[in-house]
Every structure is written in structure tokens, then in C-alpha cells.
Nucleic acid binder design. Sequence first.
DNA 1: GGGTCGAATGGGATCGATCCCATACCGCCA
DNA 2: TGGCGGTATGGGATCGATCCCATTCGACCC
Lengths: 348, 348
Amino acid sequence: MSDRQGAASRDEPPRRATIRDVADTAEVSRSTASRALTGRGYVAPAVRDRVRRAARELGYVPDAMARHLRQQASNAIGVVVSDLRNDFYASLAAGVSQQARKRRYTMLLSDDGGSTVFEVEAAEAFVAMRVAGVITTPVSARLSDYLARHRIPVVEVDRRFAAGSCDAIVVDNEGAARAVTAQLLELGHRRIALVIDETHWTTGRDRSAGYRAAFEDAGVAVEKSLVVTAGWNTDDAYREAQRLLQLADPPTAIFAANNVLSEGVWRAAADLGIRIPRDLSLISFDDAPWMSMVRPGITAIAQDAVAMGEAALTQLLARIEAPQAPIRTVMFTPTVVHRGSTGPPAKR
Amino acid sequence: MSDRQGAASRDEPPRRATIRDVADTAEVSRSTASRALTGRGYVAPAVRDRVRRAARELGYVPDAMARHLRQQASNAIGVVVSDLRNDFYASLAAGVSQQARKRRYTMLLSDDGGSTVFEVEAAEAFVAMRVAGVITTPVSARLSDYLARHRIPVVEVDRRFAAGSCDAIVVDNEGAARAVTAQLLELGHRRIALVIDETHWTTGRDRSAGYRAAFEDAGVAVEKSLVVTAGWNTDDAYREAQRLLQLADPPTAIFAANNVLSEGVWRAAADLGIRIPRDLSLISFDDAPWMSMVRPGITAIAQDAVAMGEAALTQLLARIEAPQAPIRTVMFTPTVVHRGSTGPPAKR
DNA sequence: GGGTCGAATGGGATCGATCCCATACCGCCA
DNA sequence: TGGCGGTATGGGATCGATCCCATTCGACCC
């Protein structure tokens, strides 16, 4: 009877259609309309079609908020990465997104810029949104602690902070680092620098462990001054590399522990006019587009970040379905892409 | 009285705390608890503190679903991009994410892979989630049509499909393309190829218009066979560039209309042993990390995608606050980064 | 014909937070 | 003393969808 729309009703409905509107249009109760649309429970075929037609005509889109409130479950998942501008994280997010679309989940994404504060803020927003689960490249244990307290499943990717208490998708950091370091040693290198972000996270720890293990295997002592922690940005890596390369007795090879560091090292070498691989061999953990474009190409340990993102979502949904299943860690084996940035050390 | 938790209550509460739990703990009504927590309405200071303490002790996180259902408004915004693995889109998303965090909005992100079908699917999910607004790099007009019907504000970024009916953040495609094409003409180039994805979208149309305008300004005729549409991936661009460069009378310069195409063109030239800039001048629309790493560096039109993302969010929130304000298009002026991939054409 | 079963439908409670409204109390002024 | 305005609090309705439960109807069997 009464038009509660206010503002003299135009052609278009100022209010979005609810299931009640659909029910009224189809001349059934809300209950019946709900059954017709969700497919749960008895509905006469003719009625079902009538309801669906009404819904289509009204442009009805069920309110996910209301549905989830009632069902106490949502189809949204949260993702927190450290830096979307880094190809690794972007690809990871792309993998999650693809898979989420297939499984009809919605992705909430937050870029925490590597900050613990923002990481926790993101987690709070996710809890408020009642996400079904969270995928993260953690920067501390706080996120998984917090989410665990709220009973929200978490999958850690790339590195682990909550080892043993949540699922994880990682790569064989130690094995890959060991393999490439061994290759450098075999080529005759002895002064092999390791440029790494830091060694407290599992990634850094394992990559550095692999590096050391290779030396041990070869019976060669690690030169401690050649292991440098260079932080998280290209500029810092650039400076550290410049310092290293200008030592009286510079390294003949550098193993850079991620794509950002590799870029810094490469730029430093280029600016100093150091020729690769004649004067310096370079191997990178993480592949990146530029590594196949510069001459010579850079030999790299390639991680399939998209596949890791897909695996993370798959594991998260498995966990949601079976909360009590044993904790699972999926380990990817990265592949080494040889491109010609390595060779025997220069003779002196 | 009765413990409705089922499963013999352990130490930890199996159910998450609601405002009712907070109210009971603080011995006030839900209404008062709500006022104390949101800060709207009268509450005695002592009571407010008691309620807040109770909330903290219980680890209470308000249910965003319930809140938004009641308030009929949400603090989530949707973002649809074409390809997260492309640095441009990833940076755009990073900019939106940063700004969203500052404004306390949550970001729903979907990667549609350039598909209209997935674009519309994403829009449906966003409508279901009752997002406050959507930012998109559209691949058709369907998304903004659909969202307009549901009264959800949209900001188009990079290209426009709903010109005039929604806000947009773009760059001066025509001006920049015209400027660099003019530079090539001034250097003496006459056979300047334009490798472009397609020319129906505003980006392609304007970039190609700028290219043509520069020719017109110089009184030089465009050689139609040198304008090639090369689709959206590196491989296709690679093939097209190979074909171009192997013509009897090949172009002496190429203007590649985005970073993906530039990569394809560069690889093709490299594989054919064509020297830049001696044999070929190359200019790219879009900057990318590799362009400053290869030798010589590639002269590029740099768009600040992060800033565009931030601007998009800012504009979207402005629109949400003032739905009736006049439509606004923000145009960024990209900068040309000269790096040495251009020079005068080789003499024959 | 009474009873049982399955199909089909509607009524009303529910999820959690908000917010309008009613109520109550206090101090103050006429 | 009555009335008023400001402060403070609680009760109950509300948002939209779901789902439990009750009801009805027809078919079928004993």
C-alpha cells in the first residue's frame, strides 16, 4: 500500500530487492522463496521456476552479509602479503585469486608492507569480516597466534612462524641453496658471498643453512665476512654489494637470496663495470623477468609462486572442511634455471 | 545458567564473544555496551571504561556482517584488475591497498584475467558483499552497467568504458604518445612502427591517436603496415616484432604501447641480433624494472601506478560521500624517462 | 475410515549489532 | 511544587536470509 521509498518513486527502484520482494512478486512466502533459490528443501517445480523468474526480473542478489550472519560462516578468505609490487607476492596473490574464483570464494587482500603492526591490523579486519580462513606470508608469529585464538585457520606461505601449529606451503630452501652453492664450489669458487635479507625467518635461515651445508660437504670453510645481511630493499643490497665488490679480495661469486637482492647486486656489478660471469658469477634465489633479459641471463632458482598460491588456497579449504586433520606442510621443489651468469673464477 | 556450548566446556570459549557477552560481563544492557564501544550516544565514563575492559578481556571483535546488515552500508570496497602478475596492475592494487588501510576500508580483490565473464562474476560477488564501491580496470562496459544498476559507485582506472557515467583515473595517453613519437620523428625516423594491443579501448585508441597526431604535425604520412595490433601477451608481441624486423624494409624505430609488448619487441630484437639504438630505436609506454637493467636502458613513458591506485580510492570515497557530485576524471601526466634506447636512424 | 507417509508451504525465531524510543533521575528555575 | 532540559540506561524492533517446526493436503494401505 504505502510507498516507503520516500522521494517520489521513479521508474527505477531506489531500494535493492530483498528476498521478501522476490517472495511477494512470486506470491509465495519468504521460506518458499529461500528454498527455491538455494535448492534446499521441498519446492514444487512450477513454484521454483516462478520464484527464479521473479528473482531474475528484480535483479535480486542475495545479501551475503545476512546469509553469513545467519549461517555463521562465510565464503570470504583473507590474504596478507608483504609487498604486492614484488613479483613473487603478486604472483602468489594471482594464484590464490584464480583458485578462489574457481571455488567460489571471495578474496580479501591486504598488503602489510612488511610491518607487524599492519599485519595485525589486517588480521583484525579479517576477524571482523568473519573470514573462513587466512593465507599469509607472515612477518611475525602474531598473526597466526591472533587468528588461532579466534579459531580461524591459517596457511603460512613462503616462511613459517607458527611451525607445527598451522599448515604451510614452502619451498625446499635449504636443498636449493645447497645445490647451487655446490655448483659454484665445483666451478672452483671459494670466495662465494651470500647476500641475504636476514636469517631469523625460516626462509633466510634455511637458505643460509643450505649455503653452509654445501661448504661443509666440500670440506671448505665459510668465510664469515662474505655472508652479509642486506635488509629488504634494492638500494641497501646495492650498497652492500658495492662494498663487497670493492674489497681488496672481493668474492668471485655471489649468491643473492631473493629477487630484490639480486637486482641490487646486479646493478652494483654493472655500475662498477664488473663483467658477468668472467669477473663474477651470480646466482639468484627467485626468478624475475629481467633475469632472462639482461646479457648474460642470470641463473636463478625459480619458484612457481602462482602454483604456491593455488596450493595455499586448496590447503586452506581442506583445513576448513576438516579442522581436526593433522597439520600439513607442502614443500615445493624449485627448479634451477641455468642462464650463463656462472663460470669458473677468474685466474689471478 | 545453562551452558549451551555443548561439548563439555574447556578452558577456552568455543564460541566467539558477542556484544551480549560483553554487556553481561560489564553488567549493562547491549544498548549501553554498543554506545560505549562505538562512542555514539550517552554513556557514563565509568561505565564506558568497564565495558571497554570487558571487551578487551573477552577478545571481543564486532561482527562486521551484523553491523553492516543493520547499517545498510559497508566499509569494504571491491577491486578488479586484469592481471596481477603485470607490474602495472600489481602496483595499482598496492596503491589502493595502502590508501584503503589508511581510510580503514577493507579491500576485496579479484583478478579477472582480462575476461568479461570473470569480470561480471566478480561484480556479482561484490554486490552480494554489499561493497561501498568498486575500482576497476575494465574490460567491457558490462561491469559498470551492472554496478550502476545496483547503485554502486565505480571508478574506472587506466581505460574507460563508461565514459561520462562514472569517475575515472587515467593518464594522458594521447599527449605522451604524441610527444615520444614526435621525438622519434625529429631524430629523423620515418618508418616508426606502433606495436599495440588493440585500438578499441580508450588506452589503445588514444595512444594510437597520439602517434598519428605526431605524424600529422610533422607532415609525414603514417605507413599503415607498420601499425600492428599484437594482442595481450609477450609471445604474440614477440612474433609480430620478429615479422616486422625481418621485413625487406624494416622499421627504424618501434613504439611499443605497453610493458608487455615492449618485452616481446625487445626479446625479438635481441634474438635477431639487432642493436639498440644503432639499428633500432625503441620506446615503451609503461616503465618496468628490466628497462633500466638492460643495456642500453629503454626509454619509457612512466606511469605512477601506485599514485593512480591511491587516487582511485580517494575518488571513490569522495563519490560515496557525495553521490550527486559531478562526474570527475583525474588525468595523470606520465613522465618520459630517457635511457638511451633511441638515436638517429642508421644510414643506408 | 482411520492412520501413515511424503510433498509442499508458511509462520516465526534466529544470527549480532545498532538505534529509536521510553523511562528515570538529577539539578535548576519559575 | 511543577516543569524542563540534559544525562544515562534498557527494551525491543530492525536489517535480510535461513531454518526449524507446524500445518495442510493428497495418496495409499490396512
